[in-house]
């Protein structure tokens, strides 16, 4: 009887397990294996090369370039997106005419595919007759090529990412704000707390679990979302706007150097794991769960 139940249980989770092993764990292990083998070319089969791919990576200036880019990209987008999300959530949490419309407007970028978003922003950024240049033209400014300048290409991508993500994070903050009983703010008001004090001492601390969740997602997204690079800059000029995942894609599928691509992937995964664990430790003391 016990044993039959046991078999029954395993049968129930078998479909989910199959999918997880087939498409998540198996490829991950395979990637780890590929990273210590050479890339098979034509008749030359892959052979074990040990840490050779990792040595190559350490001496690859492009790798360091995209890694630095990615760190700046993460540092630039995550705080801004989170702050903006919180601000928008607080704004649309209050009753005012047109609230539903504003909520929808803030959330719209999330529904759009990143490729479509990139195409819209391509129109904004187009030198000469793009939206930005048209507005700047009113003030007598000449043409700007934000995407073509190594100094501004990455920030231009960051703006798109913030625009795309803030609305998504806003939804989580909005849900969390609505879960805070309004009596807390009322009690604080009676005790003489102003709006800013209430936010700083009550609302924000109570949103900490959401902030943790959102920031982990934001970190992952800052390494994961590269679709807009394909449309806007293709990583250029001179890798100025290339990110780690974009470089992995180029290495693996444009230059077909799958072993090196696997190596870079392992590094990316390790980095994400470290960051996520680090965030949990960093936030642990500050997060109050109900």
């Amino acid at each position: 009887m016990r044993k039959r139940e046991w078999i029954y249980g395993w049968l129930l989770i078998l479909p989910a397990l199959t999918l997880i092993f087939l498409f998540t764990h198996f490829p991950a292990v395979l990637t780890l294996l590929h990273s210590v083998f050479s890339t098979p070319r034509g008749r030359k089969a892959a052979h074990f090369v040990g840490p050779a791919n990792y040595e190559r990576m350490i001496h690859d200036p492009v790798f360091w370039k995209v890694l630095t880019n990615n760190l700046w990209y993460a540092l630039g987008t995550i705080p801004v997106a989170i702050a903006l999300a919180l601000l928008m959530a607080v704004l649309v949490n209050r009753p005012f005419p047109g609230r539903a419309l504003s909520r929808m407007a803030f959330f719209t970028p999330t529904i759009l595919p990143l490729i479509a978003v990139a195409n819209i922003w391509l129109f904004f950024y187009t030198p000469g007759f793009g939206l930005i240049d048209q507005i700047l033209g009113l003030f007598g400014q000449g043409q700007t090529n934000l995407l073509g300048d190594p100094a501004t290409a990455l920030p231009a991508l960051m703006v798109v990412a913030v625009w795309k993500e803030a609305g998504f994070f806003m939804i989580f903050y909005l849900a969390a704000l609505q879960a805070i009983p309004p009596q807390l703010a009322e009690a604080a008001r009676i005790e003489g707390a102003g709006r800013w004090t209430i936010f700083r001492r009550i609302t924000f601390p109570l949103l900490m679990p959401t902030t943790l969740f959102v920031s982990i997602n934001a970190v992952i997204n800052s390494f994961r979302l590269v679709d807009h690079i394909f449309i806007l800059t293709n990583g250029g000029p001179d890798n100025a706007s290339s990110l780690l995942l974009f470089y992995i894609y180029e290495t693996s599928f444009r230059y077909w150097d799958t072993a090196y691509g696997a190596t870079l992937t392992v590094v990316l995964l390790a980095l994400l794991c470290l960051l996520a664990i680090g965030q949990f430790f960093f936030f642990e003391r500050k997060v109050h769960y109900k």
Binding site: P181, Q183, E186, A188, I202, L206, H288
Partner: peptide
Amino acid sequence: SMVFQSYALFPH
């Protein structure tokens, strides 16, 4: 001062 039905204590 006021005491609320739910107490409205700050949980954190």
